[in-house]
């Protein structure tokens, strides 16, 4: 996976362990809250829909 644009978010996600090549799991998408929950390195994080759309992922 890779993160496009938004340098501050990209850096923060990388620091939380979401580096290019790190496996991630989509836990849920919440249309109401506009939030996507991901699992990375055994921890769960929620990020906005708009931000999540910038993640470049490939199925494992």
């Amino acid at each position: 996976m890779a993160v496009e644009g938004l340098p501050a978010l990209r850096r923060r996600l990388m620091e939380m362990g979401l580096l290019p090549g790190t496996p991630l799991r989509l836990i849920r998408r919440m249309s109401l809250g506009g939030v996507v929950e991901l699992e990375v390195r055994r921890s769960r994080v929620s990020i906005g829909h708009g931000e999540a759309a910038r993640l470049i992922v490939a199925p494992l």
Binding site: A8, L9, V35, E37, S43, R44, V45, S46, I47
Partner: peptide
């Protein structure tokens, strides 16, 4: 100020 996108950890 500059927009800081939110990253919320979901603890168990």
């Amino acid at each position: 100020g500059s927009y800081i996108p939110l990253v919320i950890e979901m603890p168990p």
